[in-house]
Design a protein around this nucleic acid. Structure first.
Lengths: 264, 264
DNA sequence: ACACAACTCTGTACAGCGTAGAGAGAAAGT
DNA sequence: ACTTTCTCTCTACGCTGTACAGAGTTGTGT
């Protein structure tokens, strides 16, 4: 069910109560064996070590020593569990140290997020049509806005800058994380896979060299410099620096704040 | 199987032959009813209209009037089919008009990709650990490199700039596309969903206002300005302009080419 | 003390998935 | 005509999320 891997569906009230740990239930029947927190913890462990694909309701229940359907006593559906997992790991993020330089603060926040995405590779594989309205997801957003508060941007610009940086970090991190997890799954590094594929490609007349001269040249240069077909960490740091340069220009008023005019 | 939604696994030779349309097979038995191209076309149609989650081997076979296992005569596994679909839709992209201004060219390329991602929302839900080595995927990369060729960047900088822009476009587009498809699936717009959630959130003491003052203020401002909780197209265009500003600075030598120094 | 309501937990069942394996039938090579 | 090679199909396995019904446990109201 690649399609419904995540929520936005489901009763908002129930989801929010779960996210904020509000019970609000009269307590009559037998003592529960588990807590929602235990379930979320177990689920995160499975997803971290075996991949999100291995995280089934049955697998989680097995790990907790209960029958599969027991899980549904605590959580309405798998989608809500993914929401809870997501908000939980965002709790690993902390406030950055005070700094008068907003570039430093933003860089730290971006690096922290980068690392979180790599600790929990499944995060960026979830379908995040709507972010879960949990405390830690909120806190992340608040911190990011605080980093660009009062540096000379309008409210709308603050919003756009934060969204832009997040989009960038997530975009690059997703590639990085998926490439790494593919290496783990397939047992082939990027380089090995490429050297297995290149000769096959060379046999195909249509794919002959000369058709993609730049890709060939730059691919070779990058491969030699980084020892790999791609160097996501380098792209991340390089790109973030360029982006912050662009934002700085906006702050300093050296930019007209618009974009490139497209001929129509 | 969220985990193996895409390839990199599988015999490289076979995959590449499929991508480039090379048969290389002696032809003895009965005439095939189908072609690989027909299968890919049908699969794309299903994914476009019903979502990638609805694209099962059984569903594709049904649409083509054959039994499910017939598909496997043409294609080794579902993962390879996804590769073929991916390369195929990249064929919708074309060379940008000649321009002496690399910013214009890059903007056009980015907008084209943005639109492709929205025409085929499933594209960014695939796990792209390794891009398929097909003709159209290659062509896209070559075009992007050509846009930044000979403007004063080193080979490594060209590589990083292209990767950075792609990461950004994909990151923002993914959010945009998933939000849109969630609206379709849940029948609730972002606004409706938010106005359903906000009162619930307000009932929770821990989530009380004042805890996230900036998120509240900026969220309100953005909501009023865009008529929605998020405005991905605006973020995309705004962000791209900032990024190109940053790249321009690098080209002009106004940047030292490094990033922000983190205190250690 | 007892009945009842509310709750947790579990077993069974259903419709769906990707695809392995065996076998029927068709076309081409000899 | 015989054999080889290929296409296509059927059946089956183990997996998925979860609906539903029922058994057992606890707290409340009388």
């Amino acid at each position: 069910m690649t399609d419904a891997d995540h929520t936005g569906t489901g009763d908002p009230r129930r989801t929010i109560e779960l996210l904020w740990g509000v019970r609000g239930k009269p307590r009559r029947g037998p003592k529960p064996k588990l807590t929602v927190d235990e379930i979320v913890t177990a689920a995160i462990e499975i997803a971290d070590t075996e991949g999100i694909g291995a995280l089934s309701v049955r697998r989680g229940a097995e790990k907790l020593g209960v029958s599969p359907m027991t899980i549904y006593t605590y959580i309405p559906s798998r989608a809500e569990l993914l929401d809870l997992m997501m908000d939980r790991v965002h709790g690993e993020l902390t406030d950055p140290p005070e700094s008068h330089d907003w570039r430093v603060t933003m860089t730290i926040l971006a690096e922290d997020a980068w690392e979180m995405y790599h600790r929990h590779p499944w995060l960026l594989q979830l379908t995040t049509g709507r972010l879960p309205l949990g405390p830690h997801t909120f806190a992340k957003h608040e911190r990011e806005l605080a980093a660009v508060d009062a540096i000379g941007l309008t409210d709308l610009e603050m919003d756009a800058v934060v969204a832009m940086v997040n989009g960038f970090v997530q975009g690059i991190a997703r590639g990085s994380v998926e490439s790494a997890s593919l290496v783990r799954r397939s047992g082939l590094t990027d380089m090995e896979w490429w050297t297995a594929s290149a000769p096959v490609l060379a046999e195909i007349p249509e794919a002959d060299a000369g058709l993609f001269p730049l890709a060939a040249r730059i691919g070779q240069a990058a491969g030699e410099a980084h020892g790999a077909a791609s160097a996501p960490l380098h792209t991340f740091r390089f790109g973030l620096a360029r982006i912050l340069d662009g934002v700085e220009q906006l702050v300093d008023g050296d930019s007209d704040g618009s974009g490139t005019e497209l001929p129509s």
